[in-house]
């Protein structure tokens, strides 16, 4: 690792659903400006890790810190205030609200600069700009994903957590979503992404982690993981 202090650090996380322990001491770090992807087979605990970091599941052991400050026990609402944006895999828009309202809800707790940020987000997703009054329930999967990412960007998060952003999308739409993630990262937002489409996700990432059965299995630069015979054979379907 480098000497740069991580934006987000999750150390030895133990978490799960009630008595069922899914994560058995997982650790990940995200450095400033990085896209980090977590891959692994189904049931490895990838989404569980994001939910635990974001306060949606209890962390029974381990610590999460943001810029060195312990945020392990903060509520989801306060984690948002601290600078973490989260894009869930499913139900990631307010389907009865319009695109405009979805984005404004993303900036709900913002005291100033809401309109400027709104304009910035709309400029990032020009396809949405002409349809701001449409209800998101009527949008395609890809468009909904754009709204979901846009909503999470409204508070200028220090880091964006993305839970399988390409799930259920056509290859073309997946490509577009990954391209947007890369673009957003290029504008200065770090990202921690869980993804089933490991090849494409690692292709835009700086580093990656491979989880299996709730534990760290491999980690390293994304290009190394893509080139690793073990990882390719076991997790990338090569």
């Amino acid at each position: 690792m480098t000497d740069v202090a991580p934006i987000l650090s999750a150390r030895d996380i133990v978490s799960g659903y009630g008595p069922v322990q899914i994560l058995k001491g997982v650790s990940v770090e995200v450095l400033p400006g990085e896209i980090v992807t977590i891959i692994g087979p189904n049931g490895a605990g990838k989404s569980t890790l994001l939910k635990a970091i974001f306060g949606l599941l209890p962390v029974t052991e381990g610590h999460v810190s943001l810029h060195g400050v312990d945020i392990t026990r903060l509520s989801t609402e306060n984690l948002v205030r601290a600078g973490i944006g989260f894009v869930p895999q499913t139900n990631n828009v307010f389907s009865s609200l319009t695109i405009r309202e979805n984005l404004l809800m993303g900036g709900f707790i913002r005291d100033e600069g809401l309109q400027d940020r709104f304009d910035w987000v709309v400029s990032l997703f020009p396809d949405l700009g002409s349809r701001l009054s449409e209800k998101t329930g009527k949008l395609s999967g890809g468009q909904r994903q754009m709204v979901a990412i846009g909503r999470a960007l409204m508070l200028e998060p220090k880091i964006l957590l993305l839970d399988e952003p390409s799930a259920s999308l056509s290859p073309k739409m997946s490509e577009m979503v990954f391209e947007k993630v890369r673009e957003i990262n290029g504008l200065g937002t770090a990202a921690l992404m869980v993804e089933q489409d490991a090849q494409r996700a690692l292709a835009i990432s700086h580093r990656g982690y491979v989880l299996a059965a709730g534990e760290n299995r491999y980690e390293g630069p994304a290009s190394d993981l893509l080139g690793s015979d073990d990882v390719r054979r076991l997790y990338l379907g090569a």
């Binding site: 974001f54 949606l56 989801t76 609402e77 948002v80 205030r81 989260f86 869930p88 139900n91 990631n92 828009v93 307010f94 389907s95 009865s96 609200l97 309202e101 404004l104 809800m105 993303g106 709900f108 707790i109 909503r151 999470a152 508070l155």
Partner: peptide, 23 residues
Amino acid sequence: TKLGTSMRAMADNPDLARASGIV
């Protein structure tokens, strides 16, 4: 109103409302 929109957001998707910082 902003309060009303947050109320509709809560009715629509409470988890996502929390993920947007709505208490």
